Amino acid sequence: NMECRVCGDKASGFHYGVHACEGCKGFFRRTIRMKLEYEKCERSCKIQKKNRNKCQYCRFQKCLALGMSHNAIRF
């Protein structure tokens, strides 16, 4: 039983190089595919399941810091 490295929810698998839940997987995919840019935040918000949708900037930064990558495809 793995935990999502981004928000701590139950991970659904290994997505983009990191154990992640469906919510964070979809969030990362949409951000990359649609080339979304979020308003910069300096607060280093703590991303948890209950508040993961509050600060998209910090959520995406955490995805990147954990090594999530669009190129991380498993063979």
Rank of each mutant, 00 (worst) to 15 (best):
R33M: 14
R5I: 08
K10Q: 14
H70Y: 08
C63M: 10
S44E: 15
S12P: 05
G26R: 10
K54V: 11
N1S: 09
H70P: 15
C41H: 05
S12G: 06
R29Y: 10
F60W: 12
K50D: 14
V18F: 04
S69V: 11
R29W: 15
S12F: 09
E3S: 11
L36G: 07
A72G: 13
F14I: 12
E42W: 06
C45A: 01
H70C: 08
V6A: 03
A65T: 10
A72W: 05
G67S: 02
K46H: 13
C4L: 01
I32L: 10
K54D: 12
A65R: 10
C63S: 00
G17I: 01
R5C: 09
T31Q: 01
E39T: 11
G17S: 04
C55Q: 03
G13S: 07
K40Q: 11
S69G: 12
S12W: 03
K49Q: 15
N53A: 10
K46Q: 14
K62M: 06
N1M: 13
K35Y: 04
G23T: 08
S69W: 08
L36H: 09
F28G: 02
C55V: 00
G23F: 12
F75Q: 15
H19F: 15
G26Y: 14
R59M: 12
L36N: 03
A11L: 06
Q56R: 07
R74A: 14
F14A: 11
I73L: 14
D9F: 06
R29L: 15
G26L: 14
K46W: 08
R29D: 15
C24V: 00
K46T: 13
F75A: 15
G8H: 10
Y16C: 06
R52Q: 11
V18Y: 03
V6W: 00
E3R: 06
Y16F: 10
K10A: 12
D9A: 10
G13F: 01
Q61P: 03
C58G: 01
E3A: 08
G26C: 09
N53V: 08
G13L: 04
K54S: 10
H15M: 09
F27R: 02
R5K: 15
E22K: 06
Q61A: 10
K40P: 09
T31R: 02
E37M: 08
R59N: 02
F60C: 01
E42A: 08
D9L: 03
Q61V: 07
C58I: 01
N51G: 09
R43F: 14
G67P: 04
K62D: 03
G8P: 00
E37N: 13
I47F: 07
E3P: 05
E22T: 06
A72S: 13
K40F: 13
N51W: 05
R30A: 05
A20V: 10
N53M: 10
D9C: 06
G13M: 05
R33T: 15
N71G: 11
N51L: 09
H15Y: 10
K54E: 14
R52A: 14
N71M: 05
M2A: 04
G8F: 02
K46S: 12
M68N: 01
K25D: 11
K49W: 12
I47T: 07
E42I: 06
C45P: 01
F75D: 15
Y16D: 15
K50N: 15
Y16G: 12
I32K: 02
D9P: 00
C55S: 01
F60E: 00
V6I: 13
R74H: 14
Y16L: 07
R30T: 10
F60H: 04
R74W: 10
R59Q: 08
R52W: 06
N71C: 07
E22C: 07
M68T: 02
C4N: 02
A65K: 10
Y57C: 06
G13W: 02
D9V: 06
A11I: 08
E42Y: 10
A72C: 09
K54M: 13
R52F: 08
L64N: 00
R52H: 06
F14D: 13
C7S: 04
R30C: 06
C58L: 02
R30G: 06
R30K: 10
K54P: 11
V18E: 05
V18L: 07
G67Q: 03
D9I: 06
R74L: 12
L66F: 05
F27Q: 00
N71K: 09
K35T: 06
C63L: 04
A65E: 12
M68P: 03
T31H: 00
R43S: 11
S69N: 09
E39W: 04
R43D: 09
K62C: 04
C41S: 00
N53T: 09
R43Q: 14
M68D: 02
V18N: 05
C4G: 00
K49R: 15
Q56S: 12
N51V: 08
C24R: 01
C21P: 00
C55A: 01
F75P: 15
C63T: 01
R33D: 15
F14S: 11
S12A: 09
C45T: 00
S44C: 08
R43M: 11
R29H: 14
H19K: 11
C63A: 03
K10L: 12
C45F: 03
K35D: 11
G8I: 02
T31L: 00
G17L: 02
Y16K: 05
G67N: 05
S44W: 06
K50V: 09
K25Y: 14
K35C: 12
C7N: 05
H15P: 07
K62P: 01
F75N: 12
C4P: 00
R74I: 12
N53Q: 09
I73H: 12
G23I: 07
G26F: 09
I47Q: 08
C63Q: 02
C55L: 00
G67F: 04
A72L: 09
E39V: 10
F28P: 05
F27S: 03
N1Y: 07
G23R: 08
G17T: 04
C63D: 03
R30D: 13
L36V: 12
L64C: 08
V18Q: 05
G26I: 13
R43I: 05
A20Y: 02
C7I: 01
A65M: 12
C7K: 03
G23L: 10
R43A: 10
E3M: 10
G8N: 00
K46D: 15
N53P: 04
N51A: 08
R5V: 14
F14M: 11
Q56T: 06
F27L: 02
C4W: 02
A20F: 15
E39A: 11
S44V: 10
H19M: 14
G26T: 13
G17A: 04
K25M: 15
Q61M: 10
G26K: 13
C63F: 05
G23K: 11
R30W: 09
S44Y: 13
A20W: 04
N53S: 12
T31S: 11
K49T: 13
L66M: 14
N53H: 09
A11K: 04
R43V: 08
K54H: 11
D9K: 04
K40S: 07
K49V: 13
E37W: 06
C41K: 00
K49G: 15
F14Q: 10
A11Y: 06
Y16Q: 11
C21E: 01
Q61D: 02
G67D: 05
E42D: 08
C41P: 10
H70L: 12
I73Q: 14
S12N: 10
K25S: 14
C21M: 00
K35M: 10
H19D: 15
R33L: 14
I32N: 03
R74C: 09
K35S: 12
L36A: 09
R74D: 14
R52D: 14
E37Q: 12
K54A: 12
K49A: 12
K35V: 06
L66I: 14
K49F: 11
E42M: 11
H19V: 10
S44I: 07
K49H: 15
N53I: 11
Q56N: 09
F27G: 01
Q56E: 14
C4T: 00
M2K: 07
R43H: 10
C55Y: 03
L36Y: 11
C58N: 00
H70N: 12
C41G: 02
A20N: 07
